[in-house]
Design a protein around this nucleic acid. Structure first.
Lengths: 203, 203, 203, 203
DNA sequence: CATGAATGAGGATTCATTCAT
DNA sequence: TATGAATGAATCCTCATTCAT
């Protein structure tokens, strides 16, 4: 039992170090030797914990997505009002991206490759589908409650929100560390809130 | 005297073929031999027209961005009303992405690498800055005309729109060929139009 | 007839240009394109006059050795006294090396390769043998005339003189353009003259 | 823990094998695969010990020159009389060349290239300068002691002796394995001894 | 004759992965 | 369990040479 814990801890340690190295050199241009050196272990030792280089990345990104899903769930737990729920979710998403900035960067780096890898594709597709499902539910809920404009295709809006989120991450990754993040996110929240809002005056 | 080739045409031909190969195999996993075979020329011939593999990609993406800029300019030429201008620009952007789908895909593939390449970074940064400048101008114009909500930070909205655009492209690239593009883009146009609209009733 | 003359002239022109290019870049690192460019002709044209790159070098070095042999013969024509003949030959050799400095440099560059090329080896061996034969004859002549010390093995001295000559060329090639050439050659002449001189007082 | 290798020993082993391969094929025409095969190791292993092909050569020639310098020092240690010192040095140089015959051959092969390589040039220049300095000192010493003819420029004689040495090596390399080495070297020693000798009868 | 576009054989080098210790 | 020495598959790119024009 304690050995198992050690193993998991070491995997996490290696994966964390790897992410910072991937961020600097890019996934493809990172050598196993770079990781070993950064993690202060032997090259061979990496293979005791991971099948290969891609496996490290998969593990690290899995942690990133897992934390996202978990956080999103917790965020929504105590909120019932649709708009509030949506906006708090968006707030969380942005906070999560900021907290996992290195993982975001590496995720973008790997995205082009992931696209063509069956296994990862399915995994990522699941994440996206889940996010869209939750968003779509909230939109529908809001529309039924007369809070959101009925003319919107709820599924389309869900896709849109996911896309916007990915786009903002992409933008940040490209720009490096931006200072105006807050303003941009405020604008996003405002645009979405106003855009979705039902015209019918709420009584 | 040996046969005189049109260097530009041949570059374009090689670049076009390369893009389809890059799309299938990914930039990194595409071998020069793959390109040569697809272009039905010898491996060495590629090097008569391009310095190296990255050079082909740069050339192809440059064409893609160049066409975008050109098209965007033409789109705005005859439109004066801010909202109409914004929406027609968005329409154009989506049409452009659809028309240059292969380039979009490869662009996403290369984005992670581009991020770390000084030369390409500067180039791409210029494109982004231009797009943001145009969008910001339109937003400001609309705000001054009382059409757009004054509370928005125009620069932030510009960044947001660019991000949304990139995000939608990313989403499409990941999903492959989607059928519901139109619905999503309609939702986008609607969301933006409603979100930006001024509350002051226009008389 | 005139065409033949033109052909020879053009070969000489190409070979001369090639030597300066070889001197700068080295034989191996000189590209046919470099030669073509320097000679202001097309790459393909070189092959109208020479079988390949090595052929150009062979032609150029042949000219160099041919001029040497010719010059050596002329030098000895009017001299009968052995020591005088030997020294004037040495003087000539040094003058020749200075006049054909570029060829000397390239010759040294190519020597390592020549060593392993049967054809060139035989050719060069012939040159050496001829030089040694002439020198040996002079030594013997001088010994019979009581001018040179009898204890010397004439053949060995001949080899020694050839070696010294090659060594001085090598030294100059390595050093680049030296200013103290004259002093060194004077020392050489003095050393050889004193070293060979018979002890028997000449009456 | 993996097996601990003696890096220096392995470098020496690879370099030694390389020299014999270089001698046969020439530096340029030797493939890394040839060396690997001859050394009975994998191609990649070579790169664990040397940066590249030229690096192997540099290492090997460095050993050759190092041994020369060391040997020359030891040779002169117990000799005080100038002529004796000079001749024993010459004897040593010839012995060294014979003992390191393979290295000599490869050295000649590489000389043309070395000429154009800044790093190696500086290194080689240092060796030459050292040799010349030592020789010049001996000549001067001999002249002051009245043993050597005063008319000689000591620096010029030093250059001459170095050149003669290089020339004899060159000659041997070209000829392959000669049998008359001894005779030639005796002639050299005799020529130099007689040539330098002071005319003033020693009392 | 002259040319330069096209070619592909050839080779140095890299690096993920293995496995003996 | 940890290691790093050893490996060779894999690939970019060069450039002498050819030959259609």
């Amino acid at each position: 039992m304690p050995k198992k814990v050690n193993k998991t801890e070491k995997m996490k340690a290696i994966a964390d170090v790897s992410i910072t190295v991937f961020k600097t050199h890019g996934f493809h241009d990172t050598r196993m030797a770079d990781i070993a050196q950064a993690a202060k272990i032997g090259k061979g030792t990496i293979y005791e914990y991971f099948k290969n280089k891609a496996d490290i990345l998969r593990y690290a990104l899995n942690q990133y997505f897992h934390a996202f899903t978990l956080g999103a769930m917790q965020t929504m737990e105590d909120v019932t009002e649709p708009l509030e729920k949506l906006l708090s979710l968006i707030e969380f998403a942005f906070r999560h991206a900021a907290a996992w900035e290195d993982h975001c960067t590496v995720y973008v780096d790997y995205f082009g490759t992931a696209r063509r890898e069956q296994e990862f594709r399915i995994y990522l597709d699941g994440i996206y589908t889940d996010m869209e499902f939750i968003l779509e539910s909230i939109i529908k809920e809001g529309q039924q409650a007369g809070k959101f404009d009925m003319a919107f295709d709820s599924a389309a809006v869900a896709v849109l929100l996911v896309s916007l989120y990915e786009g903002v991450i992409l933008y940040d990754v490209f720009k490096g560390k931006p200072g105006n993040r807050k303003i941009i996110r405020d604008a996003a929240v405002r645009l979405i809130a106003r855009g979705l809002k039902s015209d019918r005056p709420e009584k």
